Amino acid sequence: MDLLHSLPTLGAILGTFLLAGLVKGVIGLGLPTIAMGLLGTLMPPAEAAALLVLPSLVTNFWQFMGGPALPPLLRRLGPMLAAVALGTLAGVWAGLLPGRGGATVGLGAALLAYAAFGLLPLRLPAVPPRAEPWAGPLIGLLTGLVTAATGVFVLPAVPYLHALGLERDRLVQALGLSFTVSTLALAAGLATGGGFGGNALGGSVLALMPALAGMALGGWLRGRVAATTFRRCFFGGLLLLGAHLVWQGVGA
C-alpha cells in the first residue's frame, strides 16, 4: 500500500481522518466508524483497518485519560475489555477481515445497524449489576468479533455501555477505554498476520495528524452546534454510507 503513488487517494485519506476526528471531537465517538466507512470505498477493509490503528489509539487514549479516576472503571469493565481483546484477536487470526466483498458487506451492515440504533428510539434495557459478570464478557466477545470482521468498534459495546447507566463523563471515559482495547487488539492481530508492516505503519502515522486536528476542531465546535442536530446528520450519513458499502460489496 504505497499511499504516495496516488495524490488523490492520499488527499481522500487525509480528508477522511480530518472529518472522522472532527466527529469524535464533537460527540466522543465515530472516528473508526467514519474512517472505515469512507476508506472502505477506496481500499480493502484490512488495509483501511491498518491505517486506523494509530489515529484511533492516540485519540482514544486522550479521551479516557481525561476522565475521572480509572481504577473503579477498570474493575467494573475489566471482564468485558478482556473479552473484547480475545474476540478481536481470535477473529483477526481466523481471517474475518480478508479483503473486499464479504468484508465490505459486513462493514456496511455494521454501519446500517449502528445508524438505526442512533436514529430510532432504540435503547437496551438497563443492565442490573447482578447481570454484569456474564453480560460484560458476552458483549465484549461479540464486539471483538465484529471489530475483527469490520474494523468498527462500536457494536454491541456502545449500546451496552449506555445501558450501564454511567454518568456522562464516565460514559465518555468508558467508550475511550473500550475503543483503546479494541485498537490494540486489532493492531496486534494485524501485526502477527503481516498486515501492519512498514507501509501500513507509515500511513497510520500520516493519518494521525489530520485526526488530531479534526478532534481539536470538534472540541471547539462541541459548544457551538446543537448535539441533537449533529447526531441526526451523523447517523443519517452513516445510513447512506452503510447502504452504499453493502451495495458495493454485493457487486464485488
Rank of each mutant, 00 (worst) to 15 (best):
M209T: 15
T59V: 05
A49Q: 04
V158R: 03
G197E: 14
T104Q: 13
L166S: 09
V58W: 10
Q63G: 05
G91L: 02
G219C: 04
E167S: 06
G21M: 03
G203C: 05
M1P: 09
A185G: 01
F153K: 00
G25E: 09
Q248A: 12
R130P: 01
G197M: 09
G176F: 03
I34K: 01
L39E: 06
A94N: 05
L122D: 09
Q248L: 15
L107N: 08
A227N: 13
L164E: 12
A82G: 15
G108S: 02
L124E: 14
G144M: 07
P159S: 00
L52I: 00
L42N: 09
R168K: 15
L212E: 11
D2L: 09
G251K: 13
P128A: 02
V127T: 15
T41D: 03
P44T: 07
A226P: 10
G165A: 02
L22P: 00
H244K: 13
A187Q: 09
A200M: 08
L7R: 11
F234E: 02
G237W: 07
M80H: 12
G40H: 08
I139P: 11
G223P: 13
P129N: 08
G91S: 08
M215G: 02
A252Y: 14
G25V: 03
E167G: 04
G106R: 13
V105H: 10
L164W: 13
P156D: 02
Y160N: 08
L81C: 06
L14N: 12
I27K: 13
L39M: 13
G193P: 04
L86H: 10
G219N: 13
K24W: 05
F64R: 09
G214H: 06
L212P: 04
L86Y: 11
L38R: 02
A207I: 06
T33F: 00
A110M: 05
T147F: 01
F235N: 00
L120G: 00
A187P: 08
L54K: 04
S56M: 12
I139S: 03
D169R: 15
T59K: 09
G30K: 02
L190K: 13
P159G: 01
A187D: 03
L171M: 10
F64Y: 15
L111Q: 07
V23C: 01
D2E: 15
V146N: 11
P55G: 02
M43H: 05
A69H: 15
G219Y: 10
G223R: 14
L208N: 12
L241C: 07
H5V: 12
A109I: 14
G28F: 05
L19F: 10
A148N: 08
M1S: 12
P44W: 08
L190A: 06
T16E: 07
R130C: 06
A69E: 15
P133W: 02
V172P: 06
P156R: 00
A243G: 14
T229R: 15
G108M: 03
V58Y: 07
A216P: 08
L245Y: 12
G30F: 00
N199L: 14
P45S: 02
G91H: 10
G165H: 10
L184R: 06
G195M: 08
W93A: 08
A243C: 05
A48L: 04
G40C: 01
G140I: 04
G11V: 03
G78P: 13
T33Q: 07
I139G: 01
F179N: 14
I34T: 14
T59A: 10
R123S: 14
G66L: 04
V127N: 08
A12K: 09
F234P: 06
A20I: 03
R100I: 04
L141K: 06
R168I: 01
